[in-house]
């Protein structure tokens, strides 16, 4: 406890240096948090689309049961199909109703007749899709064929771009934060040179002298991380409606953002724990480097 109060006193005695360190760490951790959320979110969207059937064949209204069975048989005979699911017009209507249950106006205007029946196909291996494609194209009474692969590829490109840009930016800002903490702690070590010398002479262990500096760097990180978490929480709360409207079809995202549920609280608490750890780690690393540079035993 005394260690914490001593560390707090050190921080108060040079408030501007402390503020610079906290503010730099705040920016770093804020961007780290936002990019991590964006990466996790885009990965969730990606895996959602990957879990969907890879090819969806929409039949025209003229398609008969024989046409559909014929296509199913042709595809089954290849031995390259993992699963096939026929979605009738009635099934399509049920799905549509489930997806739009919060909008009665949309439900009133739609009947089973205007929705197409479809066949959802998943291949055993992604490379088989190109072999199945010409067989589907030859089939009769088909209105449209949707390849999920195109959507997944586009998402993958976006996810990778977010990940790499985020990593580069977070890496740069982390380095900047470590250097800032290192400079601030280095200045404090210089200011406390006489005190450190006395401590050494009276028999203080290296750990006794070092721990307050490590704690100080760590506390800068913790303050920065907490401020970042507050901003992220406020942003999430403000964008809650937009997120559920845009990505609500993904069950995980919907259950987190639909209301002030325990899942939301748990998620935010988890994010706080991670950010605090990252903050403490960055601050402590800066301090350790400063000590190895300026505090010799």
């Amino acid at each position: 406890m005394k260690l914490i109060t001593d560390t707090w006193t050190h921080m108060r005695r040079s408030p501007y240096q402390s503020l610079v360190a906290v503010f730099t760490l705040f920016l770093t951790i804020l961007l780290t948090g936002l990019f991590c959320l964006a990466t996790i979110g885009s990965s969730m969207v990606l895996s959602y689309f990957e879990s969907k059937p890879q090819i969806t064949v929409f039949f025209s209204d003229k398609a008969t049961a024989a046409d559909i069975n014929m296509l199913k048989k042709i595809l089954e005979d290849t031995g390259k199909v993992y699963s096939m699911k026929y979605v009738s017009k009635e099934d399509a209507l049920t799905i549509y109703r489930e997806q739009n249950k919060r909008d009665p106006l949309l439900l009133e205007m739609v009947t089973a007749n205007i929705l197409p029946a479809s066949l959802e196909i998943s291949a055993k291996e992604p490379q088989y899709l190109t072999e199945l494609e010409p067989l589907i194209a030859k089939a009769t009474n088909i209105e449209e064929v949707v390849f999920q692969k195109d959507v997944v590829d586009a998402l993958l490109r976006w996810t990778n771009a977010i990940r790499w840009i985020g990593l580069a930016l977070v890496g740069f800002l982390s380095l900047n934060s470590i250097l800032t903490v290192m400079t601030v702690i280095g200045m404090k070590i210089a200011l406390k040179k006489d005190e450190i010398e006395i401590l050494k002479l009276v028999g203080a262990s290296p750990r006794y002298i070092q721990i307050p500096f490590i704690l100080e760097g760590g506390l800068y990180g913790i303050f920065g991380a907490f401020a970042s978490w507050l901003v992220i929480t406020v942003v999430c709360l403000l964008l809650r409606t937009n997120i559920t409207n845009f990505l609500g079809m993904i069950p995980v995202i919907y259950s987190i953002f639909q209301s002030f549920s325990w899942i939301f609280v748990g998620t935010m608490a988890g994010i706080l724990a991670i950010l605090l750890f990252v903050g403490f780690f960055l601050g402590a690393i800066g301090s350790v480097i400063a000590m190895s540079r300026y505090l010799k035993f």
Binding site: K200, L201, V202, G203, P206
Partner: peptide
Amino acid sequence: KTSHIYILRRKIGT
């Protein structure tokens, strides 16, 4: 050892 100097200094008041 450098890491043990503080133990020696605890035996000696200056």
